[in-house]
Amino acid sequence: MVSNPPPKPKHPFSFYLLPFILPILLITVWQLASNLDWLQSSILPSPLVIAQTLLDLLKSGELLKNIAVSLLRVLEGFAIGAGLGLIAGLIMGLSRSMERLLSLITGLLRPIPTIAWIPALILWMGIGESSKITVIAVGSFWPVLLSVIQGVRSTDPKYLEVARILEKDRVTLLTKVIIPSALPSIFTGLRIGMGIAWASVVGAELIAASSGIGFMIMYAREVSQPDVMLVGVAAIGLTGLLIDFLLLQLQRRLLKWNSVWGGES
C-alpha cells in the first residue's frame, strides 16, 4: 500500500528528440521537392523562402505586432467567456433546478458553430474589437461550462460526507472540497476553451479585420504572397502550442497533489 512519489525518470536525449523527427523529415522532403521544381513556388514556396520571409517579418516587427493584436483579443475574450462559463457551470453543477431551467437554452445554443455567430455579431456590434472579442467569448464559454458542470457533479459523495461530519459551511464546502475536486476537469475545459478561442480569433479576423494574424494571412492572399500567408499559418500553430504549454505548466503546478494530472500528461 506504500505509494511513494512517482520517481522522475531521467529520459535519454533521444526522448526529447523524438517529436522533432517527423517535422524535420517533412520539411526536408518539401525542400527537395522545391529544389527539383516539383512544386510551383507561387502556390507552395520552399521552406527556405518561407524562413527568409519569417526573418523579414520578424525584423520589421510586423509578425509580432499582428500576433500581439490577436493574442490580446484572445485573452480578453477568453477571460470573459471562461469566466462566465465558470460561474454558470458552478451554478448549474450545484443546483439541479438551475440546470433544468437552463437546459433547453444551452442545448439549443451549444451546437451552433462559433463562426456562425460572426455575421450576426458584426451586424450588431460593427467590425470593431467588440464583435471579435464576443466571438472568442462565445467559443471559449461552452467547453468551460461543460467541464465545470461535469467536475462539480463528479465530486466524491464520501468527501461531501466528511465535510458534513466536520460541520463545514457552504462556502468552505465549495472552496475547499467541490472546486479542488473539480479542478482537473475544469482544467481540461480551460485548455479546450483556449484552443477554440485562438481558432475563433483567426476566423473572425479572416472575415473582418484590419490587424491581427488572421488579417495578415487574408491580406497576403489578396496580394498573392503565399510565403507570408504560410508564415502566418505557422505562427498560429506555434502560438497555440505555446499557450497550451503554458496552461499545462499552470495545471501541473496547481494539481501537484494529483498523481495523474499533476504528473506528466
Binding site: 466528511v162 460541520e167 479542478l183 497533489w257 494529483n258
Partner: peptide, 17 residues
C-alpha cells in the same frame, strides 16, 4: 452529524489536494 462525534471510515477519505 456533529463535531462531538468523530468518525473514521475504512477508507481514509483524506482530501488529496
Amino acid at each position: 452529524p456533529g463535531l462531538d462525534r468523530g468518525i473514521v471510515f475504512q477508507e481514509s477519505r483524506l482530501f488529496p489536494w
